[in-house]
C-alpha cells in the first residue's frame, strides 16, 4: 500500500516536533526514517500508525484519507521499540492475539489460527518457542516475535520503531540482513525509524533524513551518500572532514587538490576515502603527520594532524585499504602529503 503525507505538522507546547512534512512512499518500498534523537522521526511514524494525531495535515493510505481513523482501522502492523509483547501470554498467544480479537464473523477457526501462528513462527524461525513467555526470551527473539505478531493480521503497511535499538551489535547485524530478506519475501510497504545511518544504508531501499522536524533529503542510500543536499546530511551520513575556506589554510587546500579559485561554497566536505595519502617528496615542508590509526577490518582509518598557520592543529581523517597501508609501511609521526580527490561544497 502506498503512503502519502500532506503538510503534516505537530507541536508539543512551543516545540515544533514536525513542520510541514510532505512525503510520498510508493508501494513495496523499505524506507528508513533517519535522524538524530529528537528530530521527530518516531512522532512521524506514530502519526502514520494513528497512535498519535497530527495537528495539521493528512495521512493517506493507498489514496484514501485515514487521518481521522483510529489505529485499529488502519491495517498497519507496528513493532515497538521495546517490543511491547504481552508478558502474561505465551509466544503463541501473543501472535494469535490479532486473530482472536477479530469480530466473530471475520475470526478464523481455532485450527486456522493454529496453522497461521505456526507458519509465522516458522517464518521468524522460532517455532520451538511457542509455549514460552516473553520474559524467557532473548532480545533478538523478542524482536522477531513482535514482528511475527504484527504480521499475523496481514497488515498492508509495516511500521517499525527503532527495531534494532535495544539489541547487541552482533544480533543487530544478523537481524538487519534478515529484515531485508523478509521484506523481499513479503513485499509489504515498510517504514522503520533509526538514528543509525549505517543501519539505514544497509537495510533501506529509500532513506528519508529528518532534522528538527523537517525533511532534509530523501533518496536511495547511494544518492544520499554520494550527493548530500546540504551540510547536515553530509555530516550525518558517514564520516566527513569539514574544511572552511576562511579559517583553513587555503593555500594548503589548493595544494591538496581542492580548486579554490572558483569555489562552489564556503565549506568543503571531504569523505575520508576521498583523501589520497602519499609519502611526500619533501617531508620537511609537509604540515601533515600521522598521529594514529585504527584498524577497521578491510580498511584502515588514519588520524592525521595538520599544523595550522595560527599554531592550532586540526585533525583530518583519511581511509585506505589494508594492503595499501601495509605497502606504505607508515610509522606514527611520519610526514605525509595529501591529495583530495573529491569534495562537496556547501554554503
Amino acid at each position: 500500500m502506498s503512503i502519502t503525507l500532506n503538510n503534516i505538522g505537530k507541536r508539543f507546547g512551543n516545540f515544533a516536533a514536525l513542520d510541514n512534512i510532505n512525503l510520498e512512499i510508493p508501494e513495496g518500498e523499505l524506507v528508513a526514517l533517519l535522524g538524530p534523537s529528537g528530530c521527530g522521526k518516531t512522532t512521524l511514524l506514530r502519526i502514520i500508525a494513528g497512535l498519535e494525531q497530527a495537528d495539521r495535515g493528512q495521512v493517506l493510505l493507498n489514496g484514501s484519507d485515514v487521518t481521522d481513523q483510529p489505529v485499529k482501522n488502519r491495517q498497519i502492523g507496528f513493532v515497538f521499540q521495546h517490543y511491547a509483547l504481552f508478558r502474561h501470554m505465551t509466544v503463541f498467544d501473543n501472535i494469535a492475539f490479532g486473530l482472536r480479537v477479530k469480530p466473530r464473523k471475520e475470526r478464523p477457526s481455532e485450527t486456522k489460527i493454529q496453522e497461521k501462528v505456526h507458519a509465522l513462527l516458522n517464518l521468524v524461525q522460532l517455532d520451538w518457542l511457542a509455549d514460552r513467555f516473553p520474559d524467557q526470551l532473548s532480545g533478538g527473539q523478542r524482536q522477531r516475535i513482535a514482528l511475527a505478531r504484527a504480521l499475523a493480521v496481514e497488515p498492508s503497511v509495516l511500521l517499525l520503531d527503532e527495531p534494532f535499538g535495544a539489541l547487541d551489535a552482533s544480533v543487530r547485524k544478523d537481524l538487519r540482513l534478515w529484515l531485508r530478506h523478509l521484506h523481499h519475501e513479503l513485499n509489504v510497504t515498510s517504514i522503520f525509524v533509526t538514528h543509525d545511518q549505517e543501519e539505514a544504508m544497509e537495510v533501506a531501499s529509500q532513506i528519508v533524513v529528518l532534522n528538527h522536524g523537517k525533511i532534509e533529503q530523501k533518496g536511495s542510500p547511494s544518492e544520499i551518500y554520494d550527493s548530500p543536499n546540504n551540510d547536515f546530511v553530509s555530516r550525518f551520513i558517514g564520516h566527513t572532514n569539514v574544511f572552511q575556506l576562511e579559517k583553513d589554510d587555503s593555500s594548503w587546500l589548493a595544494g591538496a587538490g581542492i580548486i579554490i579559485d572558483d569555489p562552489k561554497g564556503i565549506v568543503a566536505h571531504v569523505r575520508p576515502h576521498n583523501i589520497q595519502v602519499e609519502k611526500p617528496q619533501d617531508p620537511a615542508n609537509s604540515p601533515v603527520y600521522l598521529k594514529d590509526w585504527q584498524h577497521l577490518g578491510a580498511i584502515i582509518r588514519l588520524e592525521l594532524s595538520k599544523d595550522g598557520t595560527n599554531g592550532k592543529a586540526t585533525t583530518i581523517f583519511a581511509e585506505m585499504p589494508n594492503e595499501q597501508f601495509r605497502e606504505l609501511a607508515l610509522q606514527k609521526g611520519d610526514r605525509l602529503s595529501l591529495h583530495i580527490k573529491h569534495a562537496h561544497w556547501f554554503n
Binding site: A49, L51, P70, V71, K72, I76, G77, F78, F80, H82, A84, L85, F86, R87, H88, F97, G98, V101, K102, R149, A150, A152, V153
Partner: peptide
C-alpha cells in the same frame, strides 16, 4: 507498559478487549 495497550490496538483490539485481555491480567 502502556505500549502493550497500543500494541493491542494496532492489532485490531477495541478498548474493552484491550482492558479485559491485556490490562486486567
Amino acid at each position: 507498559d502502556t505500549a502493550m495497550e497500543e500494541a493491542a490496538a494496532s492489532l485490531g483490539a477495541n478498548r474493552l478487549q484491550t482492558f479485559i485481555r491485556i490490562i486486567l491480567p
